[in-house]
Design a protein around this nucleic acid. Sequence first.
RNA 1: AGGAGUGUAGCUCAGGUGGUAGAGCAACGCACUUUUAAUGCGUAGGUCCUGGGUUCGAAUCCCAGCACUCCUACCA
Length: 484
Amino acid sequence: MNMEHQKMSNIEQAREDKLRAIKQMGIDPYGGRYEIAEASAEVKARYKDNEEGQKARCAGRIVLLRDIGKLIFITLRDSSGTIQIGLSKSLLEAQWKFMKLLEAGDIIGAAGQLGKTKTGEITIWADEVVLLSKSMLPPPEKWHGLADIDLRYRQRYVDLWANPEVMERFKKRAAILRTIREFLTGRGFMEVETPMMQTIAGGAAAKPFITHHNTLDLDLFLRIAPELFLKRLLVGGMEKVFEINRNFRNEGLSTRHNPEFTMLELYEAYADYNVMMDLTEELICLLVDKYCTGGKVQFGEMAVDFERPWRRAIYAQLLKEYGGCDIENIQSVRAKATELGIEHKNMDDAVVINGVFEATVEKNLIKPTFVKDYPAALCPLTKRKKDRPGIAERFELYIAGMELANAYTELNDPAVQEENFRLQLKGQHETMAKMDEDFVTALKYGMPPAGGLGIGIDRLIMILTGATSIRDVVLFPLLKPAKP
RNA sequence: AGGAGUGUAGCUCAGGUGGUAGAGCAACGCACUUUUAAUGCGUAGGUCCUGGGUUCGAAUCCCAGCACUCCUACCA
């Protein structure tokens, strides 16, 4: 036996011993169904002072345990909160030896009279205690919880019960998603699911993950966007559709990027990007009203005010305002790029413009700001302005310096679409880049004019919960495997 | 990919200039029938991330590696 093994067994020996003792008493340490357990929060809410005969029945994990000799106080945590369980030797005489073996981390069910202690804590004075799962590993430190960030992500199952605010954040995430679905279905949108595995990774310019189907001997891409499939549904006659699902992009990780992330995309026939702007503002303001106090959010150092109406600014104007260069004068833009140290030789004008925009404008857009009317060269799937073919009817929404949404008036001219694809492919060195001919075919059958919108759900949750890292709003963020 | 930081007991963290490794919680033992991070007394617990190097001597200094965090880069 090596040293490491010795150490482990010393630490966990006590729990092993207790498990053995419990089994010797004829008790199943892993329990079974525990019926009619009530949420601890509900028990506390319905408790009335000075009323005899109130009973309660709860199940959860022991997070704190105070042994006073013939009396044991347990802080029991379930998904709704915590409640105190009082174990008294006089009430549990026959089981007392077993009671003394309970420890932090164990999952138990307890039932008995409700009452208050001297200090006013609502307490279930148990006359029944059932062990539902023996915990074989020591829980984290009780004051600080689990603080090691790496461990928190790797062992989220511990993080969730050791750090209640983590559970709260993910409950909020679930509630927000419910509200989004209610908002959209209430407006006549239908939720659909489109392929995650695609033979052509389209709808965005990102590096895809590759996988393989054995029976068909076919390489497939995990989707980088659902866009081209959702627009096929417009062709099919679905007029208002949305999908909330994962996208996968084979790119770097950061506090704002996880390789798999949740995206809301929606399409509305006969609408355009102005309709999408209104919709976006209404949806997010509804969420802010519902889930953030005072219509404001503290995001790191930034205080974000959602007061309406939100600014709707022209791309070129912002470039002038923050970048100090004129989009019509490409020399001034390239000069700025040089000044900023951005590599721009042999690069398309539009790409250089976008580089300068991202470097100068984005970080300044703290309050919700719609940036609209992008250079058409950056927007192959977008309809151009009727009077200005160089400008695309597209907007991006920025909040707290972060890109949160992207929307446009959808291009429905198959000839222009095909040409855009062709131009896009020319500039691309990626071998996986392929023309989605079937999408062009779909457009040839006729797609209604439409507005389309994508909202990065993880980033939205970050803003609404004040989490500055995407890993704090994704239950299991991608990490490198731990040491061998 | 580049820069900065972190890695010490199961957990949370201390360990100026190199000299036998520290605390709190958790664990174990004893006491305690109204505790709230219970308390008091006692015991035990270490590959100081890994591998090299300098040195009489390294948790500490140097080099390389691993993991994580933050920033930058990549990211329609």
